[in-house]
Design a protein around this nucleic acid. Structure first.
Lengths: 304, 304
DNA sequence: CCACGGATGAAACTTACTTTCACCGGGCGC
DNA sequence: GCGCCCGGTGAAAGTAAGTTTCATCCGTGG
């Protein structure tokens, strides 16, 4: 077709769509029809086959190809994937109803899911942002050097405590968790300098946990508090304070968001500890994984 | 095992990549090679022609087509544009070191925290995106109408199961959780039509949980599976399948990400159930909150 | 009126995609 | 142990998509 070598750089850095509409006037009538279709609904165009698009533009496939070349593409397939990418990039802003944190009475499940996920993800992200790596480092240090580690938590935080204990145990650390206050108190009384006690309480006001932590501290153990409120009572008995950042607006989603935030912190500590001796941790994990292998059935096969 | 009408829905509006990695274990070896290529670099795969991709995966075009069908696409072109869209949507993660999911040996704690938070938040978001509200709705319906609800889970999933049980219990639902298989089996044998059994297993291959769920189903209870792998064995014994979307690449962060994803789903169900009778749920929550109030110390210096 | 050239679509052609089918190898019943 | 069956696989045939070629049309200027 002997078009003279254009030096206009097939760059089109801004949107492809913008690029196309820019040179729309320079296209032939039939090509313009194609261009208008493409610009008005890129995603739809990307779905169509070349014949389909040609028909929709009331022209032939040949013209569509010419159009592709005119806008700097190699051929139709390339245009297609570029359009798909372009269309996907325009992110729709998060639903306004979702951000508030509370769930409106008439909400359908899709809305509920979106709201919860949004809050949960935010809690995780924001917690990580405000976590002080230096403090974490010190806690990790303490745990790595500890003769014994005890983790306390009541109610919902008890799950987190138990989870932490189990994780540490799996990589060969001497960690304990006691669901019962009395047992916990007894055990804390046996802690000594060099040991570590971790108290988890979202509100920071759980009497049992504070009491146990206090006991541990009196015995010389290093104490760590994990709470959402940096000035709550539990921080008074802790050498190290780690905070989560759950907004906790409502009784509904807040509870879970704070849980996830706590778990994230726990995971960070765990990985930090494991990273101190990767080989040993990996070996321990493999051994424990093997231990439950017989309790698994073969990988499922697909159905239809 | 009964191949009854599964209500798991091939609904993957959220991450296609995540969807594919979830399906990965259920694919045949040759298809897995294709899947891995696609997952590792979607944008690149989108650029390739089917022949090209087949060659790269050391297989035939036929297998690539089979792979397309296995992941729910009509054919290769559709996969291609979906991949292009996916790749475009993907916002560049803050730090390249953070993406892989794995943590480099020399990483400092700040890096570790960023990586974990990123993966955790993604798992939550992506899980929510691919959750099918219709299936959730049916599960909520079943729970609301259930005479008894039992939740099963082993190991780490046991925490999630226990959490779910506790939540339901707090809003006055008759929910149970048994850490012990034998007790669980015994209890499942007493279930009847109208009851609900929920089995939680990240891998979907935990023999104990599958067994119990099977038992529950045999007794006529509605069975729900919560797993990361939509075609794993547990789905064969479930009337409703809910999936999480944790990438689960490494032993380190993956474990926690999947846990958070499970909890998010549990929370959605919980809120869905609670929303059915807001007044009653709220009252129940207040009563239970009161019950532990004496176990809290004064609000301390906690600021709003 | 005719020559010219750009625009266009029909049809030929090429390449990409899809289906079919035979083969292989491993598991299972006899 | 033997043969049957069955899922996984790729070669090859078949179909559809994309691309090129080319004849036609139409307006324009000589």
């Amino acid at each position: 077709m002997a078009k003279s070598p254009k030096i206009s750089a097939s760059h089109e850095p801004g949107g492809l769509i913008v690029h196309i509409s820019g040179l729309l006037p320079s296209l032939s009538p039939a090509e313009q029809r194609v261009a208008r279709l493409v610009v008005s609904d890129p995603a739809d165009a990307a779905r169509r086959t070349i014949t389909d698009l040609a028909t929709a533009a009331e022209t032939s496939e040949a013209t569509v190809i010419r159009f592709c070349r005119s806008v700097g593409m190699d051929g139709y397939p390339q245009l297609r994937i570029r359009l798909a990418a372009e269309a996907a990039r325009r992110v729709e802003p998060p639903d306004a109803r979702v951000v508030g944190g509370d769930i409106p009475p008439g909400a359908d499940l899709a809305q509920i899911i979106a709201t919860i996920a949004f809050n949960d993800a935010r809690a995780v992200e924001e917690t990580a942002e405000q976590l002080d790596p230096a403090v974490c480092e010190q806690v990790v240090e303490a745990i790595v050097g500890a003769g014994r580690i005890e983790v306390y938590g009541a109610g919902a935080s008890g799950f987190v405590a138990s989870d932490f204990q189990q994780k540490l145990h799996r990589i060969g650390r001497m960690a304990f968790y006691f669901p019962d206050v009395h047992t916990a108190l007894t055990s804390a009384a046996l802690l000594a300098k060099g040991d570590v006690a971790v108290g988890i309480s979202h509100s920071g006001t759980t009497a049992d946990v504070i009491e146990v932590l206090e006991q541990a501290r009196a015995r010389g153990a290093s104490t760590v508090a994990l709470t959402n409120f940096p000035r709550s009572p539990i921080t008074d008995v802790a050498d190290f304070v780690l905070t989560t950042a759950a907004r906790e607006t409502t009784y509904r989603s807040g509870a879970m968001a704070s849980r996830l935030a706590q778990l994230t912190v726990v995971d960070c500590l765990f990985v930090g500890v494991a990273a101190r001796n990767r080989a040993r941790a990996r070996r321990a994990l493999e051994v424990t994984a093997d231990a439950v292998r017989t309790r698994r059935v073969g990988p499922g096969r697909r159905r239809g």
